[in-house]
């Protein structure tokens, strides 16, 4: 059977209406946030996560990060919860159980959407068996990004949810300035040679470590002076105490020597 897709099939999160929060509940919620003065109980709802979020939540409540310091306690039933923590991109099968858990929690309740999948569907955002995030089915109060959020990011997120810390991130738009141009890096080194060095560094040690090593190496190449290039390169590699980095620098030196020859 062939079924062709339409715009609505792709876009719609489902025919279900979004849940509205009545005004009195909103008032109760802000009162809860301002004046909690007691432990906040958290209930986790896994809406189809991969378990990375679940395990990091575990890590947040165990000794090293110990979120219970702030009275944050994970409870066994949504009926006891102040905060509902939704993980996962909301799979088709978990939509109803998630809604039932939401209904079961008493008002006022704070809904936290946890991890990239919860916040926006993450890497799974447009798949056929997910709805693409908590806020597609429920009103959400706080979003904690991360894939998964680290325990420290979790603690920060709880603090934001409880109004203890303000959020740092703000929407920003950069508009290209007049005459804004990107200069070619290391202009004194022939472009093709620079590309060869950077590629080799990435092949040897990956984009991050290799990139940093290549940068150091290129800065050294650019230094003016009368010392011959080959001598400079070998002195540079010899001064390196980490044998693996020395090996990589020697390899970059070979690349330069081969290119010049």
């Amino acid at each position: 059977m062939t079924r062709h897709i339409t715009e609505t099939d792709v876009r719609a999160a489902g025919p279900f209406a979004k849940i509205d929060t009545p005004a009195d509940v909103v008032r109760m919620k802000s009162a809860l946030l301002k004046d909690i003065r007691r432990s906040a109980y958290v209930y986790r709802v896994d809406c189809g996560g991969c378990n990375a979020c679940e395990i990091e939540i575990f890590a947040s409540i165990t000794p090293v990060f110990d979120a219970e310091r702030f009275g944050i306690k994970v409870v066994a039933s949504p009926r006891h919860a102040d905060i509902l923590l939704f993980t996962g991109a909301v799979t088709r099968s978990m939509r109803m159980p998630a809604l039932r858990a939401y209904e079961a929690a008493p008002d006022p309740k704070i809904v936290v959407s946890y991890g990239a999948c919860g916040v926006s569907g993450g890497i799974f955002h447009d798949l056929y068996c997910v709805w693409g995030g908590t806020d597609k089915i429920l009103p959400v109060d706080v979003y904690i990004p991360g894939c998964p959020p680290t325990p420290a990011a979790t603690v920060y997120g709880f603090a934001v949810a409880l109004g203890l810390l303000g959020q740092k991130l703000k929407a920003e738009t950069h508009v290209q300035a007049e005459g804004e141009r990107v200069a070619v890096a290391h202009p004194s080194i022939p472009y093709n040679l620079r590309v060869l060095v950077e590629r080799e560094a990435r092949r040897m040690a990956g984009y991050r470590q290799g990139g940093d090593i290549a940068e150091k190496f290129l800065v050294m190449l650019e230094q003016p002076g009368l010392v011959p290039l080959t001598d400079r390169m070998s002195t540079f590699a010899a001064a390196e105490t980490d044998p693996r980095v020395a090996e990589i620098l020697a390899r970059l030196g070979d690349v330069v020597t081969e290119a010049i020859a």
């Binding site: 059977m1 897709i5 099939d9 489902g14 798949l127 056929y128």
Partner: peptide, 29 residues
Amino acid sequence: VLPDDWPDGLHPLRKDSMDYRLRPEPTGD
């Protein structure tokens, strides 16, 4: 693997069955 309310006869991995983003409407709770 497929959810209980997934349409009969719609087999996601057939090359000609559907776009990977197709989300049939839920039919039952």
